[in-house]
Design a protein around this nucleic acid. Structure first.
Lengths: 185, 185
DNA sequence: CTGTGCATGTAATCCGTTACATGATTTA
DNA sequence: TAAATCATGTAACGGATTACATGCACAG
C-alpha cells in the first residue's frame, strides 16, 4: 500500500515487461543492454522490486521454469499504472550535477587547473560522441517500436554530448580570458 | 575512517565554507540560494554531515553564538581534500534520466499522447530558458570568484535548455512523421 | 508579550550499491 | 566432469527525504 508514484525503477521494470514476459535474470540483461545509461538497476534491487510489484498486483508469475526461474508478466493493473505514469505524472527534472558542482568551486584551483578540468570535460564529451555515432550506425532504422523511440533517446545523447563539448571548450577559453584580464591589471 | 571519496555533499559543504565560516543554518540557506539546482541538501542531512566533517577534522567549530549556534570553518585538511577532489577525482557522469526513461516507453501511449509529452518537454525547457535569461541579467558581471564560475554554470544551463527545447520539438515532429508513414501503409 | 526567524538535532523510511551466499542446468 | 551460465535470494551500509521535536532571541 502507498507504493510510491515517484520512484522509477518500478516503471522501468513495468516498461520492460510490456515487451513480453521475462524473469528477473532476463530483465537484468535488458537493464544492462538497453537502459544502462538511462536507468541502471542492480540485481539485488531488481529482485526486490519484482517481489514488491507482484505483491501490489502489477505483475504476476506467469510461468515457472528450471532452476527456480520465475517468469513475470505485466498485469492490466500494471499496464494502467505505466500509462498513468507516462501520461499524467510530470517528470522530475534532474536535480544533481556533480560536474556543475565542481564548476562552482573551480576558483579554489589555479586557473590552469580549472582549464584542465574544463578541457577534460570537452575531451570526454567528444569521446562519448564518437561512441554514440558508432552506435547510431548499428541501429536498425526500422525494427519495432523500441527503435522509433530508442532513436529519439540516442539523438538526445548526441545533441547533449555536442552541447557539453562546445560549452566546455568555450568555458576553458573564458577562464583563460579572465586570467589574461587579471594579469593586465 | 573510510569517509568516502565519491560522495559530494561533503565537497559541496567544504566548498561553501571556503567562502567563509558559517553555521549549519547559514549553509542551509546557501544551499537553497546558490546550489539548489546543482546539489540540493536538506537540513537533516547537512547537520549530520557537519558532524562527520568535524569528526574527520575537515572542519572545526570556530565560534559559538546565541541559540547554540556553532560556526564552522574549513581546516587546512578540509581545503586539501576539496582541492584533491576537484583536481584529481574524475567526476561521475549522471547515470539517470527520468525524462529519457519515459521516452523509451512512449510506444505504450498513442502517438498523440507521445507528441504531447514531447511538446510539454519543449515548453518546460523554453520556460526555464526564459527564467535563466532573467537571472543572467541580474548577475553582476564582475563580483568575485563566484561570479566567474557561476556564470559558466549559468551558461551551461542556458545551452542545455536550448538543446532540450530543440530536441523535443524535433522529436515530436519525428513522431508525427512516423505516424504519417504508418498511416500511409 | 507574541510572532517570526534563528538554530539544532533525532527518527523512520526508502533507494541504491556492494558483497555474500547458494545451487541447478547446460555445454564442451 | 568441469566450466560457464542461468537463476534467485539476503545482509550490511550509506545517502536522501520527510516528519517530528525542541527551544532561544529579537523586533514590533
Amino acid at each position: 500500500m502507498n507504493y510510491d508514484d515517484v520512484v522509477s525503477l518500478k516503471h522501468a521494470t513495468l516498461g520492460l515487461l510490456t515487451y513480453g514476459p521475462a524473469s528477473g535474470y532476463d530483465l537484468l540483461q535488458k537493464f544492462r543492454d538497453s537502459l544502462a545509461n538511462v536507468w541502471p538497476a542492480t540485481q539485488s534491487q531488481l529482485y526486490g522490486e519484482l517481489g514488491k510489484l507482484a505483491d501490489a498486483g502489477l505483475v504476476t508469475v506467469a510461468a515457472e521454469g528450471p532452476r527456480g526461474r520465475k517468469e513475470y508478466a505485466i498485469t492490466p493493473e500494471g499496464s494502467a499504472e505505466l500509462r498513468h505514469w507516462l501520461g499524467e505524472v510530470p517528470p522530475a527534472p534532474n536535480r544533481r550535477s556533480e560536474m556543475l558542482l565542481r564548476v562552482f568551486f573551480l576558483g579554489m584551483l589555479t586557473p590552469e587547473q580549472a582549464q584542465d578540468y574544463l578541457n577534460d570535460r570537452a575531451t570526454v564529451a567528444a569521446e562519448l560522441q564518437g561512441e554514440l555515432r558508432e552506435l547510431a550506425k548499428t541501429v536498425d532504422p526500422d525494427s519495432g517500436p523500441l527503435a522509433v523511440y530508442g532513436r529519439l533517446a540516442l539523438e538526445w545523447a548526441l545533441r547533449f554530448s555536442a552541447m557539453q563539448q562546445e560549452w566546455a571548450t568555450w568555458a576553458a577559453e573564458e577562464v583563460r580570458r579572465a586570467q589574461d584580464g587579471a594579469a593586465a591589471d
